[in-house]
Amino acid sequence: MNVEQKLSKNKFSVDEGNPHISVDSSRLDADTIHALTVVCPAGLYSLGERGELHFDAAGCLECGTCRIVCAGHPGAMSWTHPRPSFGVTYRFG
């Protein structure tokens, strides 16, 4: 089962147009960009054909791992919680 299928089992309420995380890859080095693609449990960071970083906040499990990875790069990542009633709602946790 791939991670997209797993995420489809979760209860999400996506705040369209208001992602709670944004990333500016021009402020990141290659190692950190690689890190983002491997550490995210939801696999939301990926590299495009030309090596550019793609990110989609929908499906975020709100763990904060990407925030930790980018902590040494000021200004590269804006990370907050989704607005109330948005984001993941764990039914089991």
Binding site: K9, L61, Y90, G93
Partner: peptide, 9 residues
């Protein structure tokens, strides 16, 4: 059967 997928630090 998978019911939920979660993550935490």
């Amino acid at each position: 059967a998978l019911l939920e997928y979660s993550a935490h630090l």
